[in-house]
């Protein structure tokens, strides 16, 4: 969550709750809503690393609130993040390890593993379908995120099929 927070702060200084709301508003239900504790912990680390600074703003009848802003180093960090290509999606290597190794040890046979995994992917797909149905049609960001997850799942299923064909 570090870099998304830096990106939001590059737009304007904000306090923790504002950042939480901005994330929720942008990504809708498609992004697991971060809790405020996580956000403050992350902000604390970013501050320690010198990427953000906080100023206390006085409030009437309430404790001061901390407003965070981006430092020059933070801006550089953000620029680097934006400028470099992003890692491709990880291969589901944990399942692949199981698929390759489990039969050798006699713990499980491949057909059972593949079938169980296929059902799991399809039920995730059903959840994504339902999530897409519930998402505000105007929220293109959230819908694209969901569509991306669907395309990844489809690729996982296609690969599963290839594993089933190729591995005896």
């Amino acid at each position: 969550m570090r870099l998304p927070l830096l990106a939001l702060l590059a737009k304007e200084p904000a306090h923790g709750y504002e950042l939480k709301h901005a994330l929720e508003k942008t990504f809708g239900d498609a992004y697991p809503s971060p809790n405020i504790g996580q956000i403050y912990v992350t902000l604390g680390r970013l501050e320690k690393d010198g990427f953000v600074r906080a100023v206390d703003v006085e409030q009437v009848n309430r404790p001061n609130k901390k407003v965070y802003y981006l430092t020059a180093t933070g801006r550089e960090k953000l620029d680097d993040w934006v400028d470099e290509p992003t890692e491709g999606p990880r291969v589901r290597d944990e399942f692949f390890m199981k698929l390759v190794l489990a039969p050798l040890t006699g713990i499980a046979d491949r057909m059972t593993l593949v079938n169980r995994q296929r059902r799991h992917y399809l039920s995730l797909m059903r959840d994504l379908n339902e999530l897409a149905e519930r998402t505000d049609p105007e929220n293109r960001v959230a819908l694209l995120l969901i569509e991306g997850a669907m395309l990844h799942l489809q690729a996982d299923l296609d690969w599963l099929e290839r594993c089933q064909e190729e591995l005896p």
């Binding site: 239900d29 697991p32 809503s33 959840d127 994504l128 999530l131 995120l145 969901i146 997850a149």
Partner: peptide, 8 residues
């Protein structure tokens, strides 16, 4: 939420 299946 089901949003958990989508991880950034």
């Amino acid at each position: 939420t089901v949003g958990d299946v989508v991880e950034l």
